[in-house]
Amino acid sequence: MMNAQPLHQTLDHWSRFTLRQRLMRYGSMMLVFLVVAWALSSIDVIWEWVWDAPSQMGDLFGRMMPPDPSNLPSILEAIWQTVNIATLATMFAVVVSLPVAYISAQNTTPNAVTLWIGRFILVSSRSVNTIIWALLFVAIFGPGIVAGIVAIMFRSIGFLGKLLGEAIEEIDQRPVEALEACGASRFKIVLYAIVPQVLPAFFAVSILRWDINLRESTVLGLVGAGGIGMILQGAIDTFNWPEVSMVLITILALVVLGEVVSSYLRKKIL
């Protein structure tokens, strides 16, 4: 172990770190401590409620037991709807993200203007959360699954476009050059030299996003954008806690299943 360390550490081996490192450590610790103290002292909470929280949680949990499966058919229907939202939205987003990735990758974008347009699309899509997109689209399309699909899609475009764009930037340029030397058109070069190289990343990223979207779709209903969240919201509003716990269990099953499916697909395709 010793000889793996730099010389100065072996020399003064009674302390594990140099003075500078130690000062840095204590400094950062102090900073963290001060920041936490500031947050704790100024946050706007009623501390009696905080001390009361464990018993409140226990109380709520008690009311949730046992889960009530009587509404299971409509829960499962809503789960199916949730899966459809995630799947359709991922498919649409994948299609839209392809040209966006193309113009936001430095080595394929036609010019500086398109590059910035591409980057702007990516940043605005990625920085606005699905729920905020959903709020907007519920206002436009009215409550329901369509608003949910569009919201998930808008959020996914940035994610997919960014990762795909990075994959395009990482390709081997040499086959591209070889096809240029053959006199192939730009589009055919994309088809033959770029698409095959980014295809693995394309599938990996799409599957990953589908998995994430499955999770995100479960909450759309809370702002009225369809799926299982609608039922959850209804059950919470009517204080039907046994049904709430039933919904939570189905969501858990859905997400775990989604993870199993996506890791299976990943293994199968890559």
Partner: peptide, 23 residues
């Protein structure tokens, strides 16, 4: 379990249990 639930769902449950607000 912690990973499977979207923070918004967790938040709704906590809001019901401990009340609105930053806590």
């Amino acid at each position: 379990v912690a990973r499977s639930f979207h923070p918004v769902i967790v938040a709704i449950i906590f809001v019901k249990a401990v009340g609105f607000g930053p806590f």
